[in-house]
């Protein structure tokens, strides 16, 4: 198979004088700052958040242990939760893979251009992520009165006669939020892919040409994709992370709760519990459930990616 021929040798080194403490010491020195700060600022807070999910905690009195009550309430008696799960899954299933594909295809296309054009194009695609919180601009664009850009454009073209209340209409909300979310979140994977493409050795392409790679599709399939597998996994994880965590955009554009809960997500619900209702134990339980959903997806996607690469 061509694929095997050109993918990097995976063998681990065997002959290095491993093991002695003196020899390994620099490695421990180099990883320890990360491990230290990672434990303090990430692992310990996560563990305490998981512990909080078994308690009732309003931030005023100290947490009291309630066992699995939060989870029971979430699954059996919270009317909004199933809706938010549905919405979150829709975002994840639509925006996740779409963002993943777009980030790769755009990076691959941009990489074909000369240095200057490439810089300009990557700026265009990355700009939304670069300037962070500018998505409130979409609020002006989709504004429900005839002042909104989309409405005034459609009105002047005679396509509609009445302004459409975009952000209060359950049918339009989901597609709008998906588009804005894609616009906002694709940048990280896109740039990671660009940086990955820089290191695909050109020797591989030359060798491929000699070995009978006839067109760009074969080149993509047998050389570029296998060399990019590590970056693709990164990009997949980032897309899972961002598409399961849609909330800020939805809350900014549609409010919470949105019309008919059309775009309320698990994270929106969790934020509402934590900051408006001060039910921190319950919010933590939601976080844990979301975490389990994302980890499961990550494992499935990992399996899928590794079969594609073979």
């Amino acid at each position: 198979m061509l694929a095997n021929k050109y993918s990097r040798p995976k063998s681990r080194r065997k002959n290095a004088p491993e093991g002695s403490f003196r020899e390994q010491l620099p490695m421990f020195v180099m990883i320890s700052p990360f491990v230290l700060f990672f434990l303090i600022f990430t692992v310990i807070p996560i563990i305490s958040s998981i512990c909080l999910s078994f308690t009732s905690y309003d931030m005023i009195s100290s947490p009291s242990f309630v066992g699995l009550d939060n989870y029971r309430r979430l699954i059996t008696s919270d009317a909004v939760f199933p809706v938010t799960v549905k919405n979150t899954v829709v975002f994840a299933v639509v925006a996740g893979p779409l963002g993943f594909l777009l980030a790769f295809v755009l990076a691959w296309l941009v990489n074909e251009f000369t240095a200057k054009k490439r810089a300009l194009l990557s700026f265009m695609f990355y700009a939304p992520a670069l300037v962070g919180n500018t998505y409130f601009i979409w609020q002006v664009a989709f504004s429900g009165d005839s002042y909104g850009y989309i409405n005034s454009l459609l009105l002047s073209l005679g396509i509609i006669t009445e302004p459409i209340v975009w952000l209060k209409n359950a049918t339009y909300l989901m597609p709008i939020i998906i588009v804005v979310q894609l616009w906002q979140s694709m940048g990280v994977s896109f740039l990671a892919n660009i940086s990955g493409l820089q290191n695909v050795s050109r020797d591989l392409y030359e060798a491929g040409a000699i070995d009978g790679i006839r067109n760009r599709w074969q080149e993509l399939r047998y050389i570029t994709l296998p060399s990019m597998s590590n970056m693709l996994l990164f990009s997949a994880v980032m897309q899972i992370q961002s598409s399961f965590s849609v909330s800020l955009i939805a809350i900014t554009l549609a409010g919470y709760p949105s019309k008919s809960n059309a775009v309320d997500t698990i994270v929106s619900l969790m934020q509402d519990m934590a900051t408006v209702r001060y039910e921190l134990g319950y919010a933590s339980a939601i976080a844990v459930v979301l975490f389990i959903m994302m980890v499961t997806t990550r494992l499935i996607v990992g399996k899928a990616l590794s079969t594609v690469q073979k």
Partner: peptide, 21 residues
């Protein structure tokens, strides 16, 4: 794996524990 999975834990509920730290 811990590094990868920690990316998946929504940072929102980590505010309070972090503040205490």
């Amino acid at each position: 794996w811990v590094v990868q999975f920690s990316l998946m834990f929504n940072a929102y509920t980590l505010g309070i524990p972090r503040y205490l730290i």
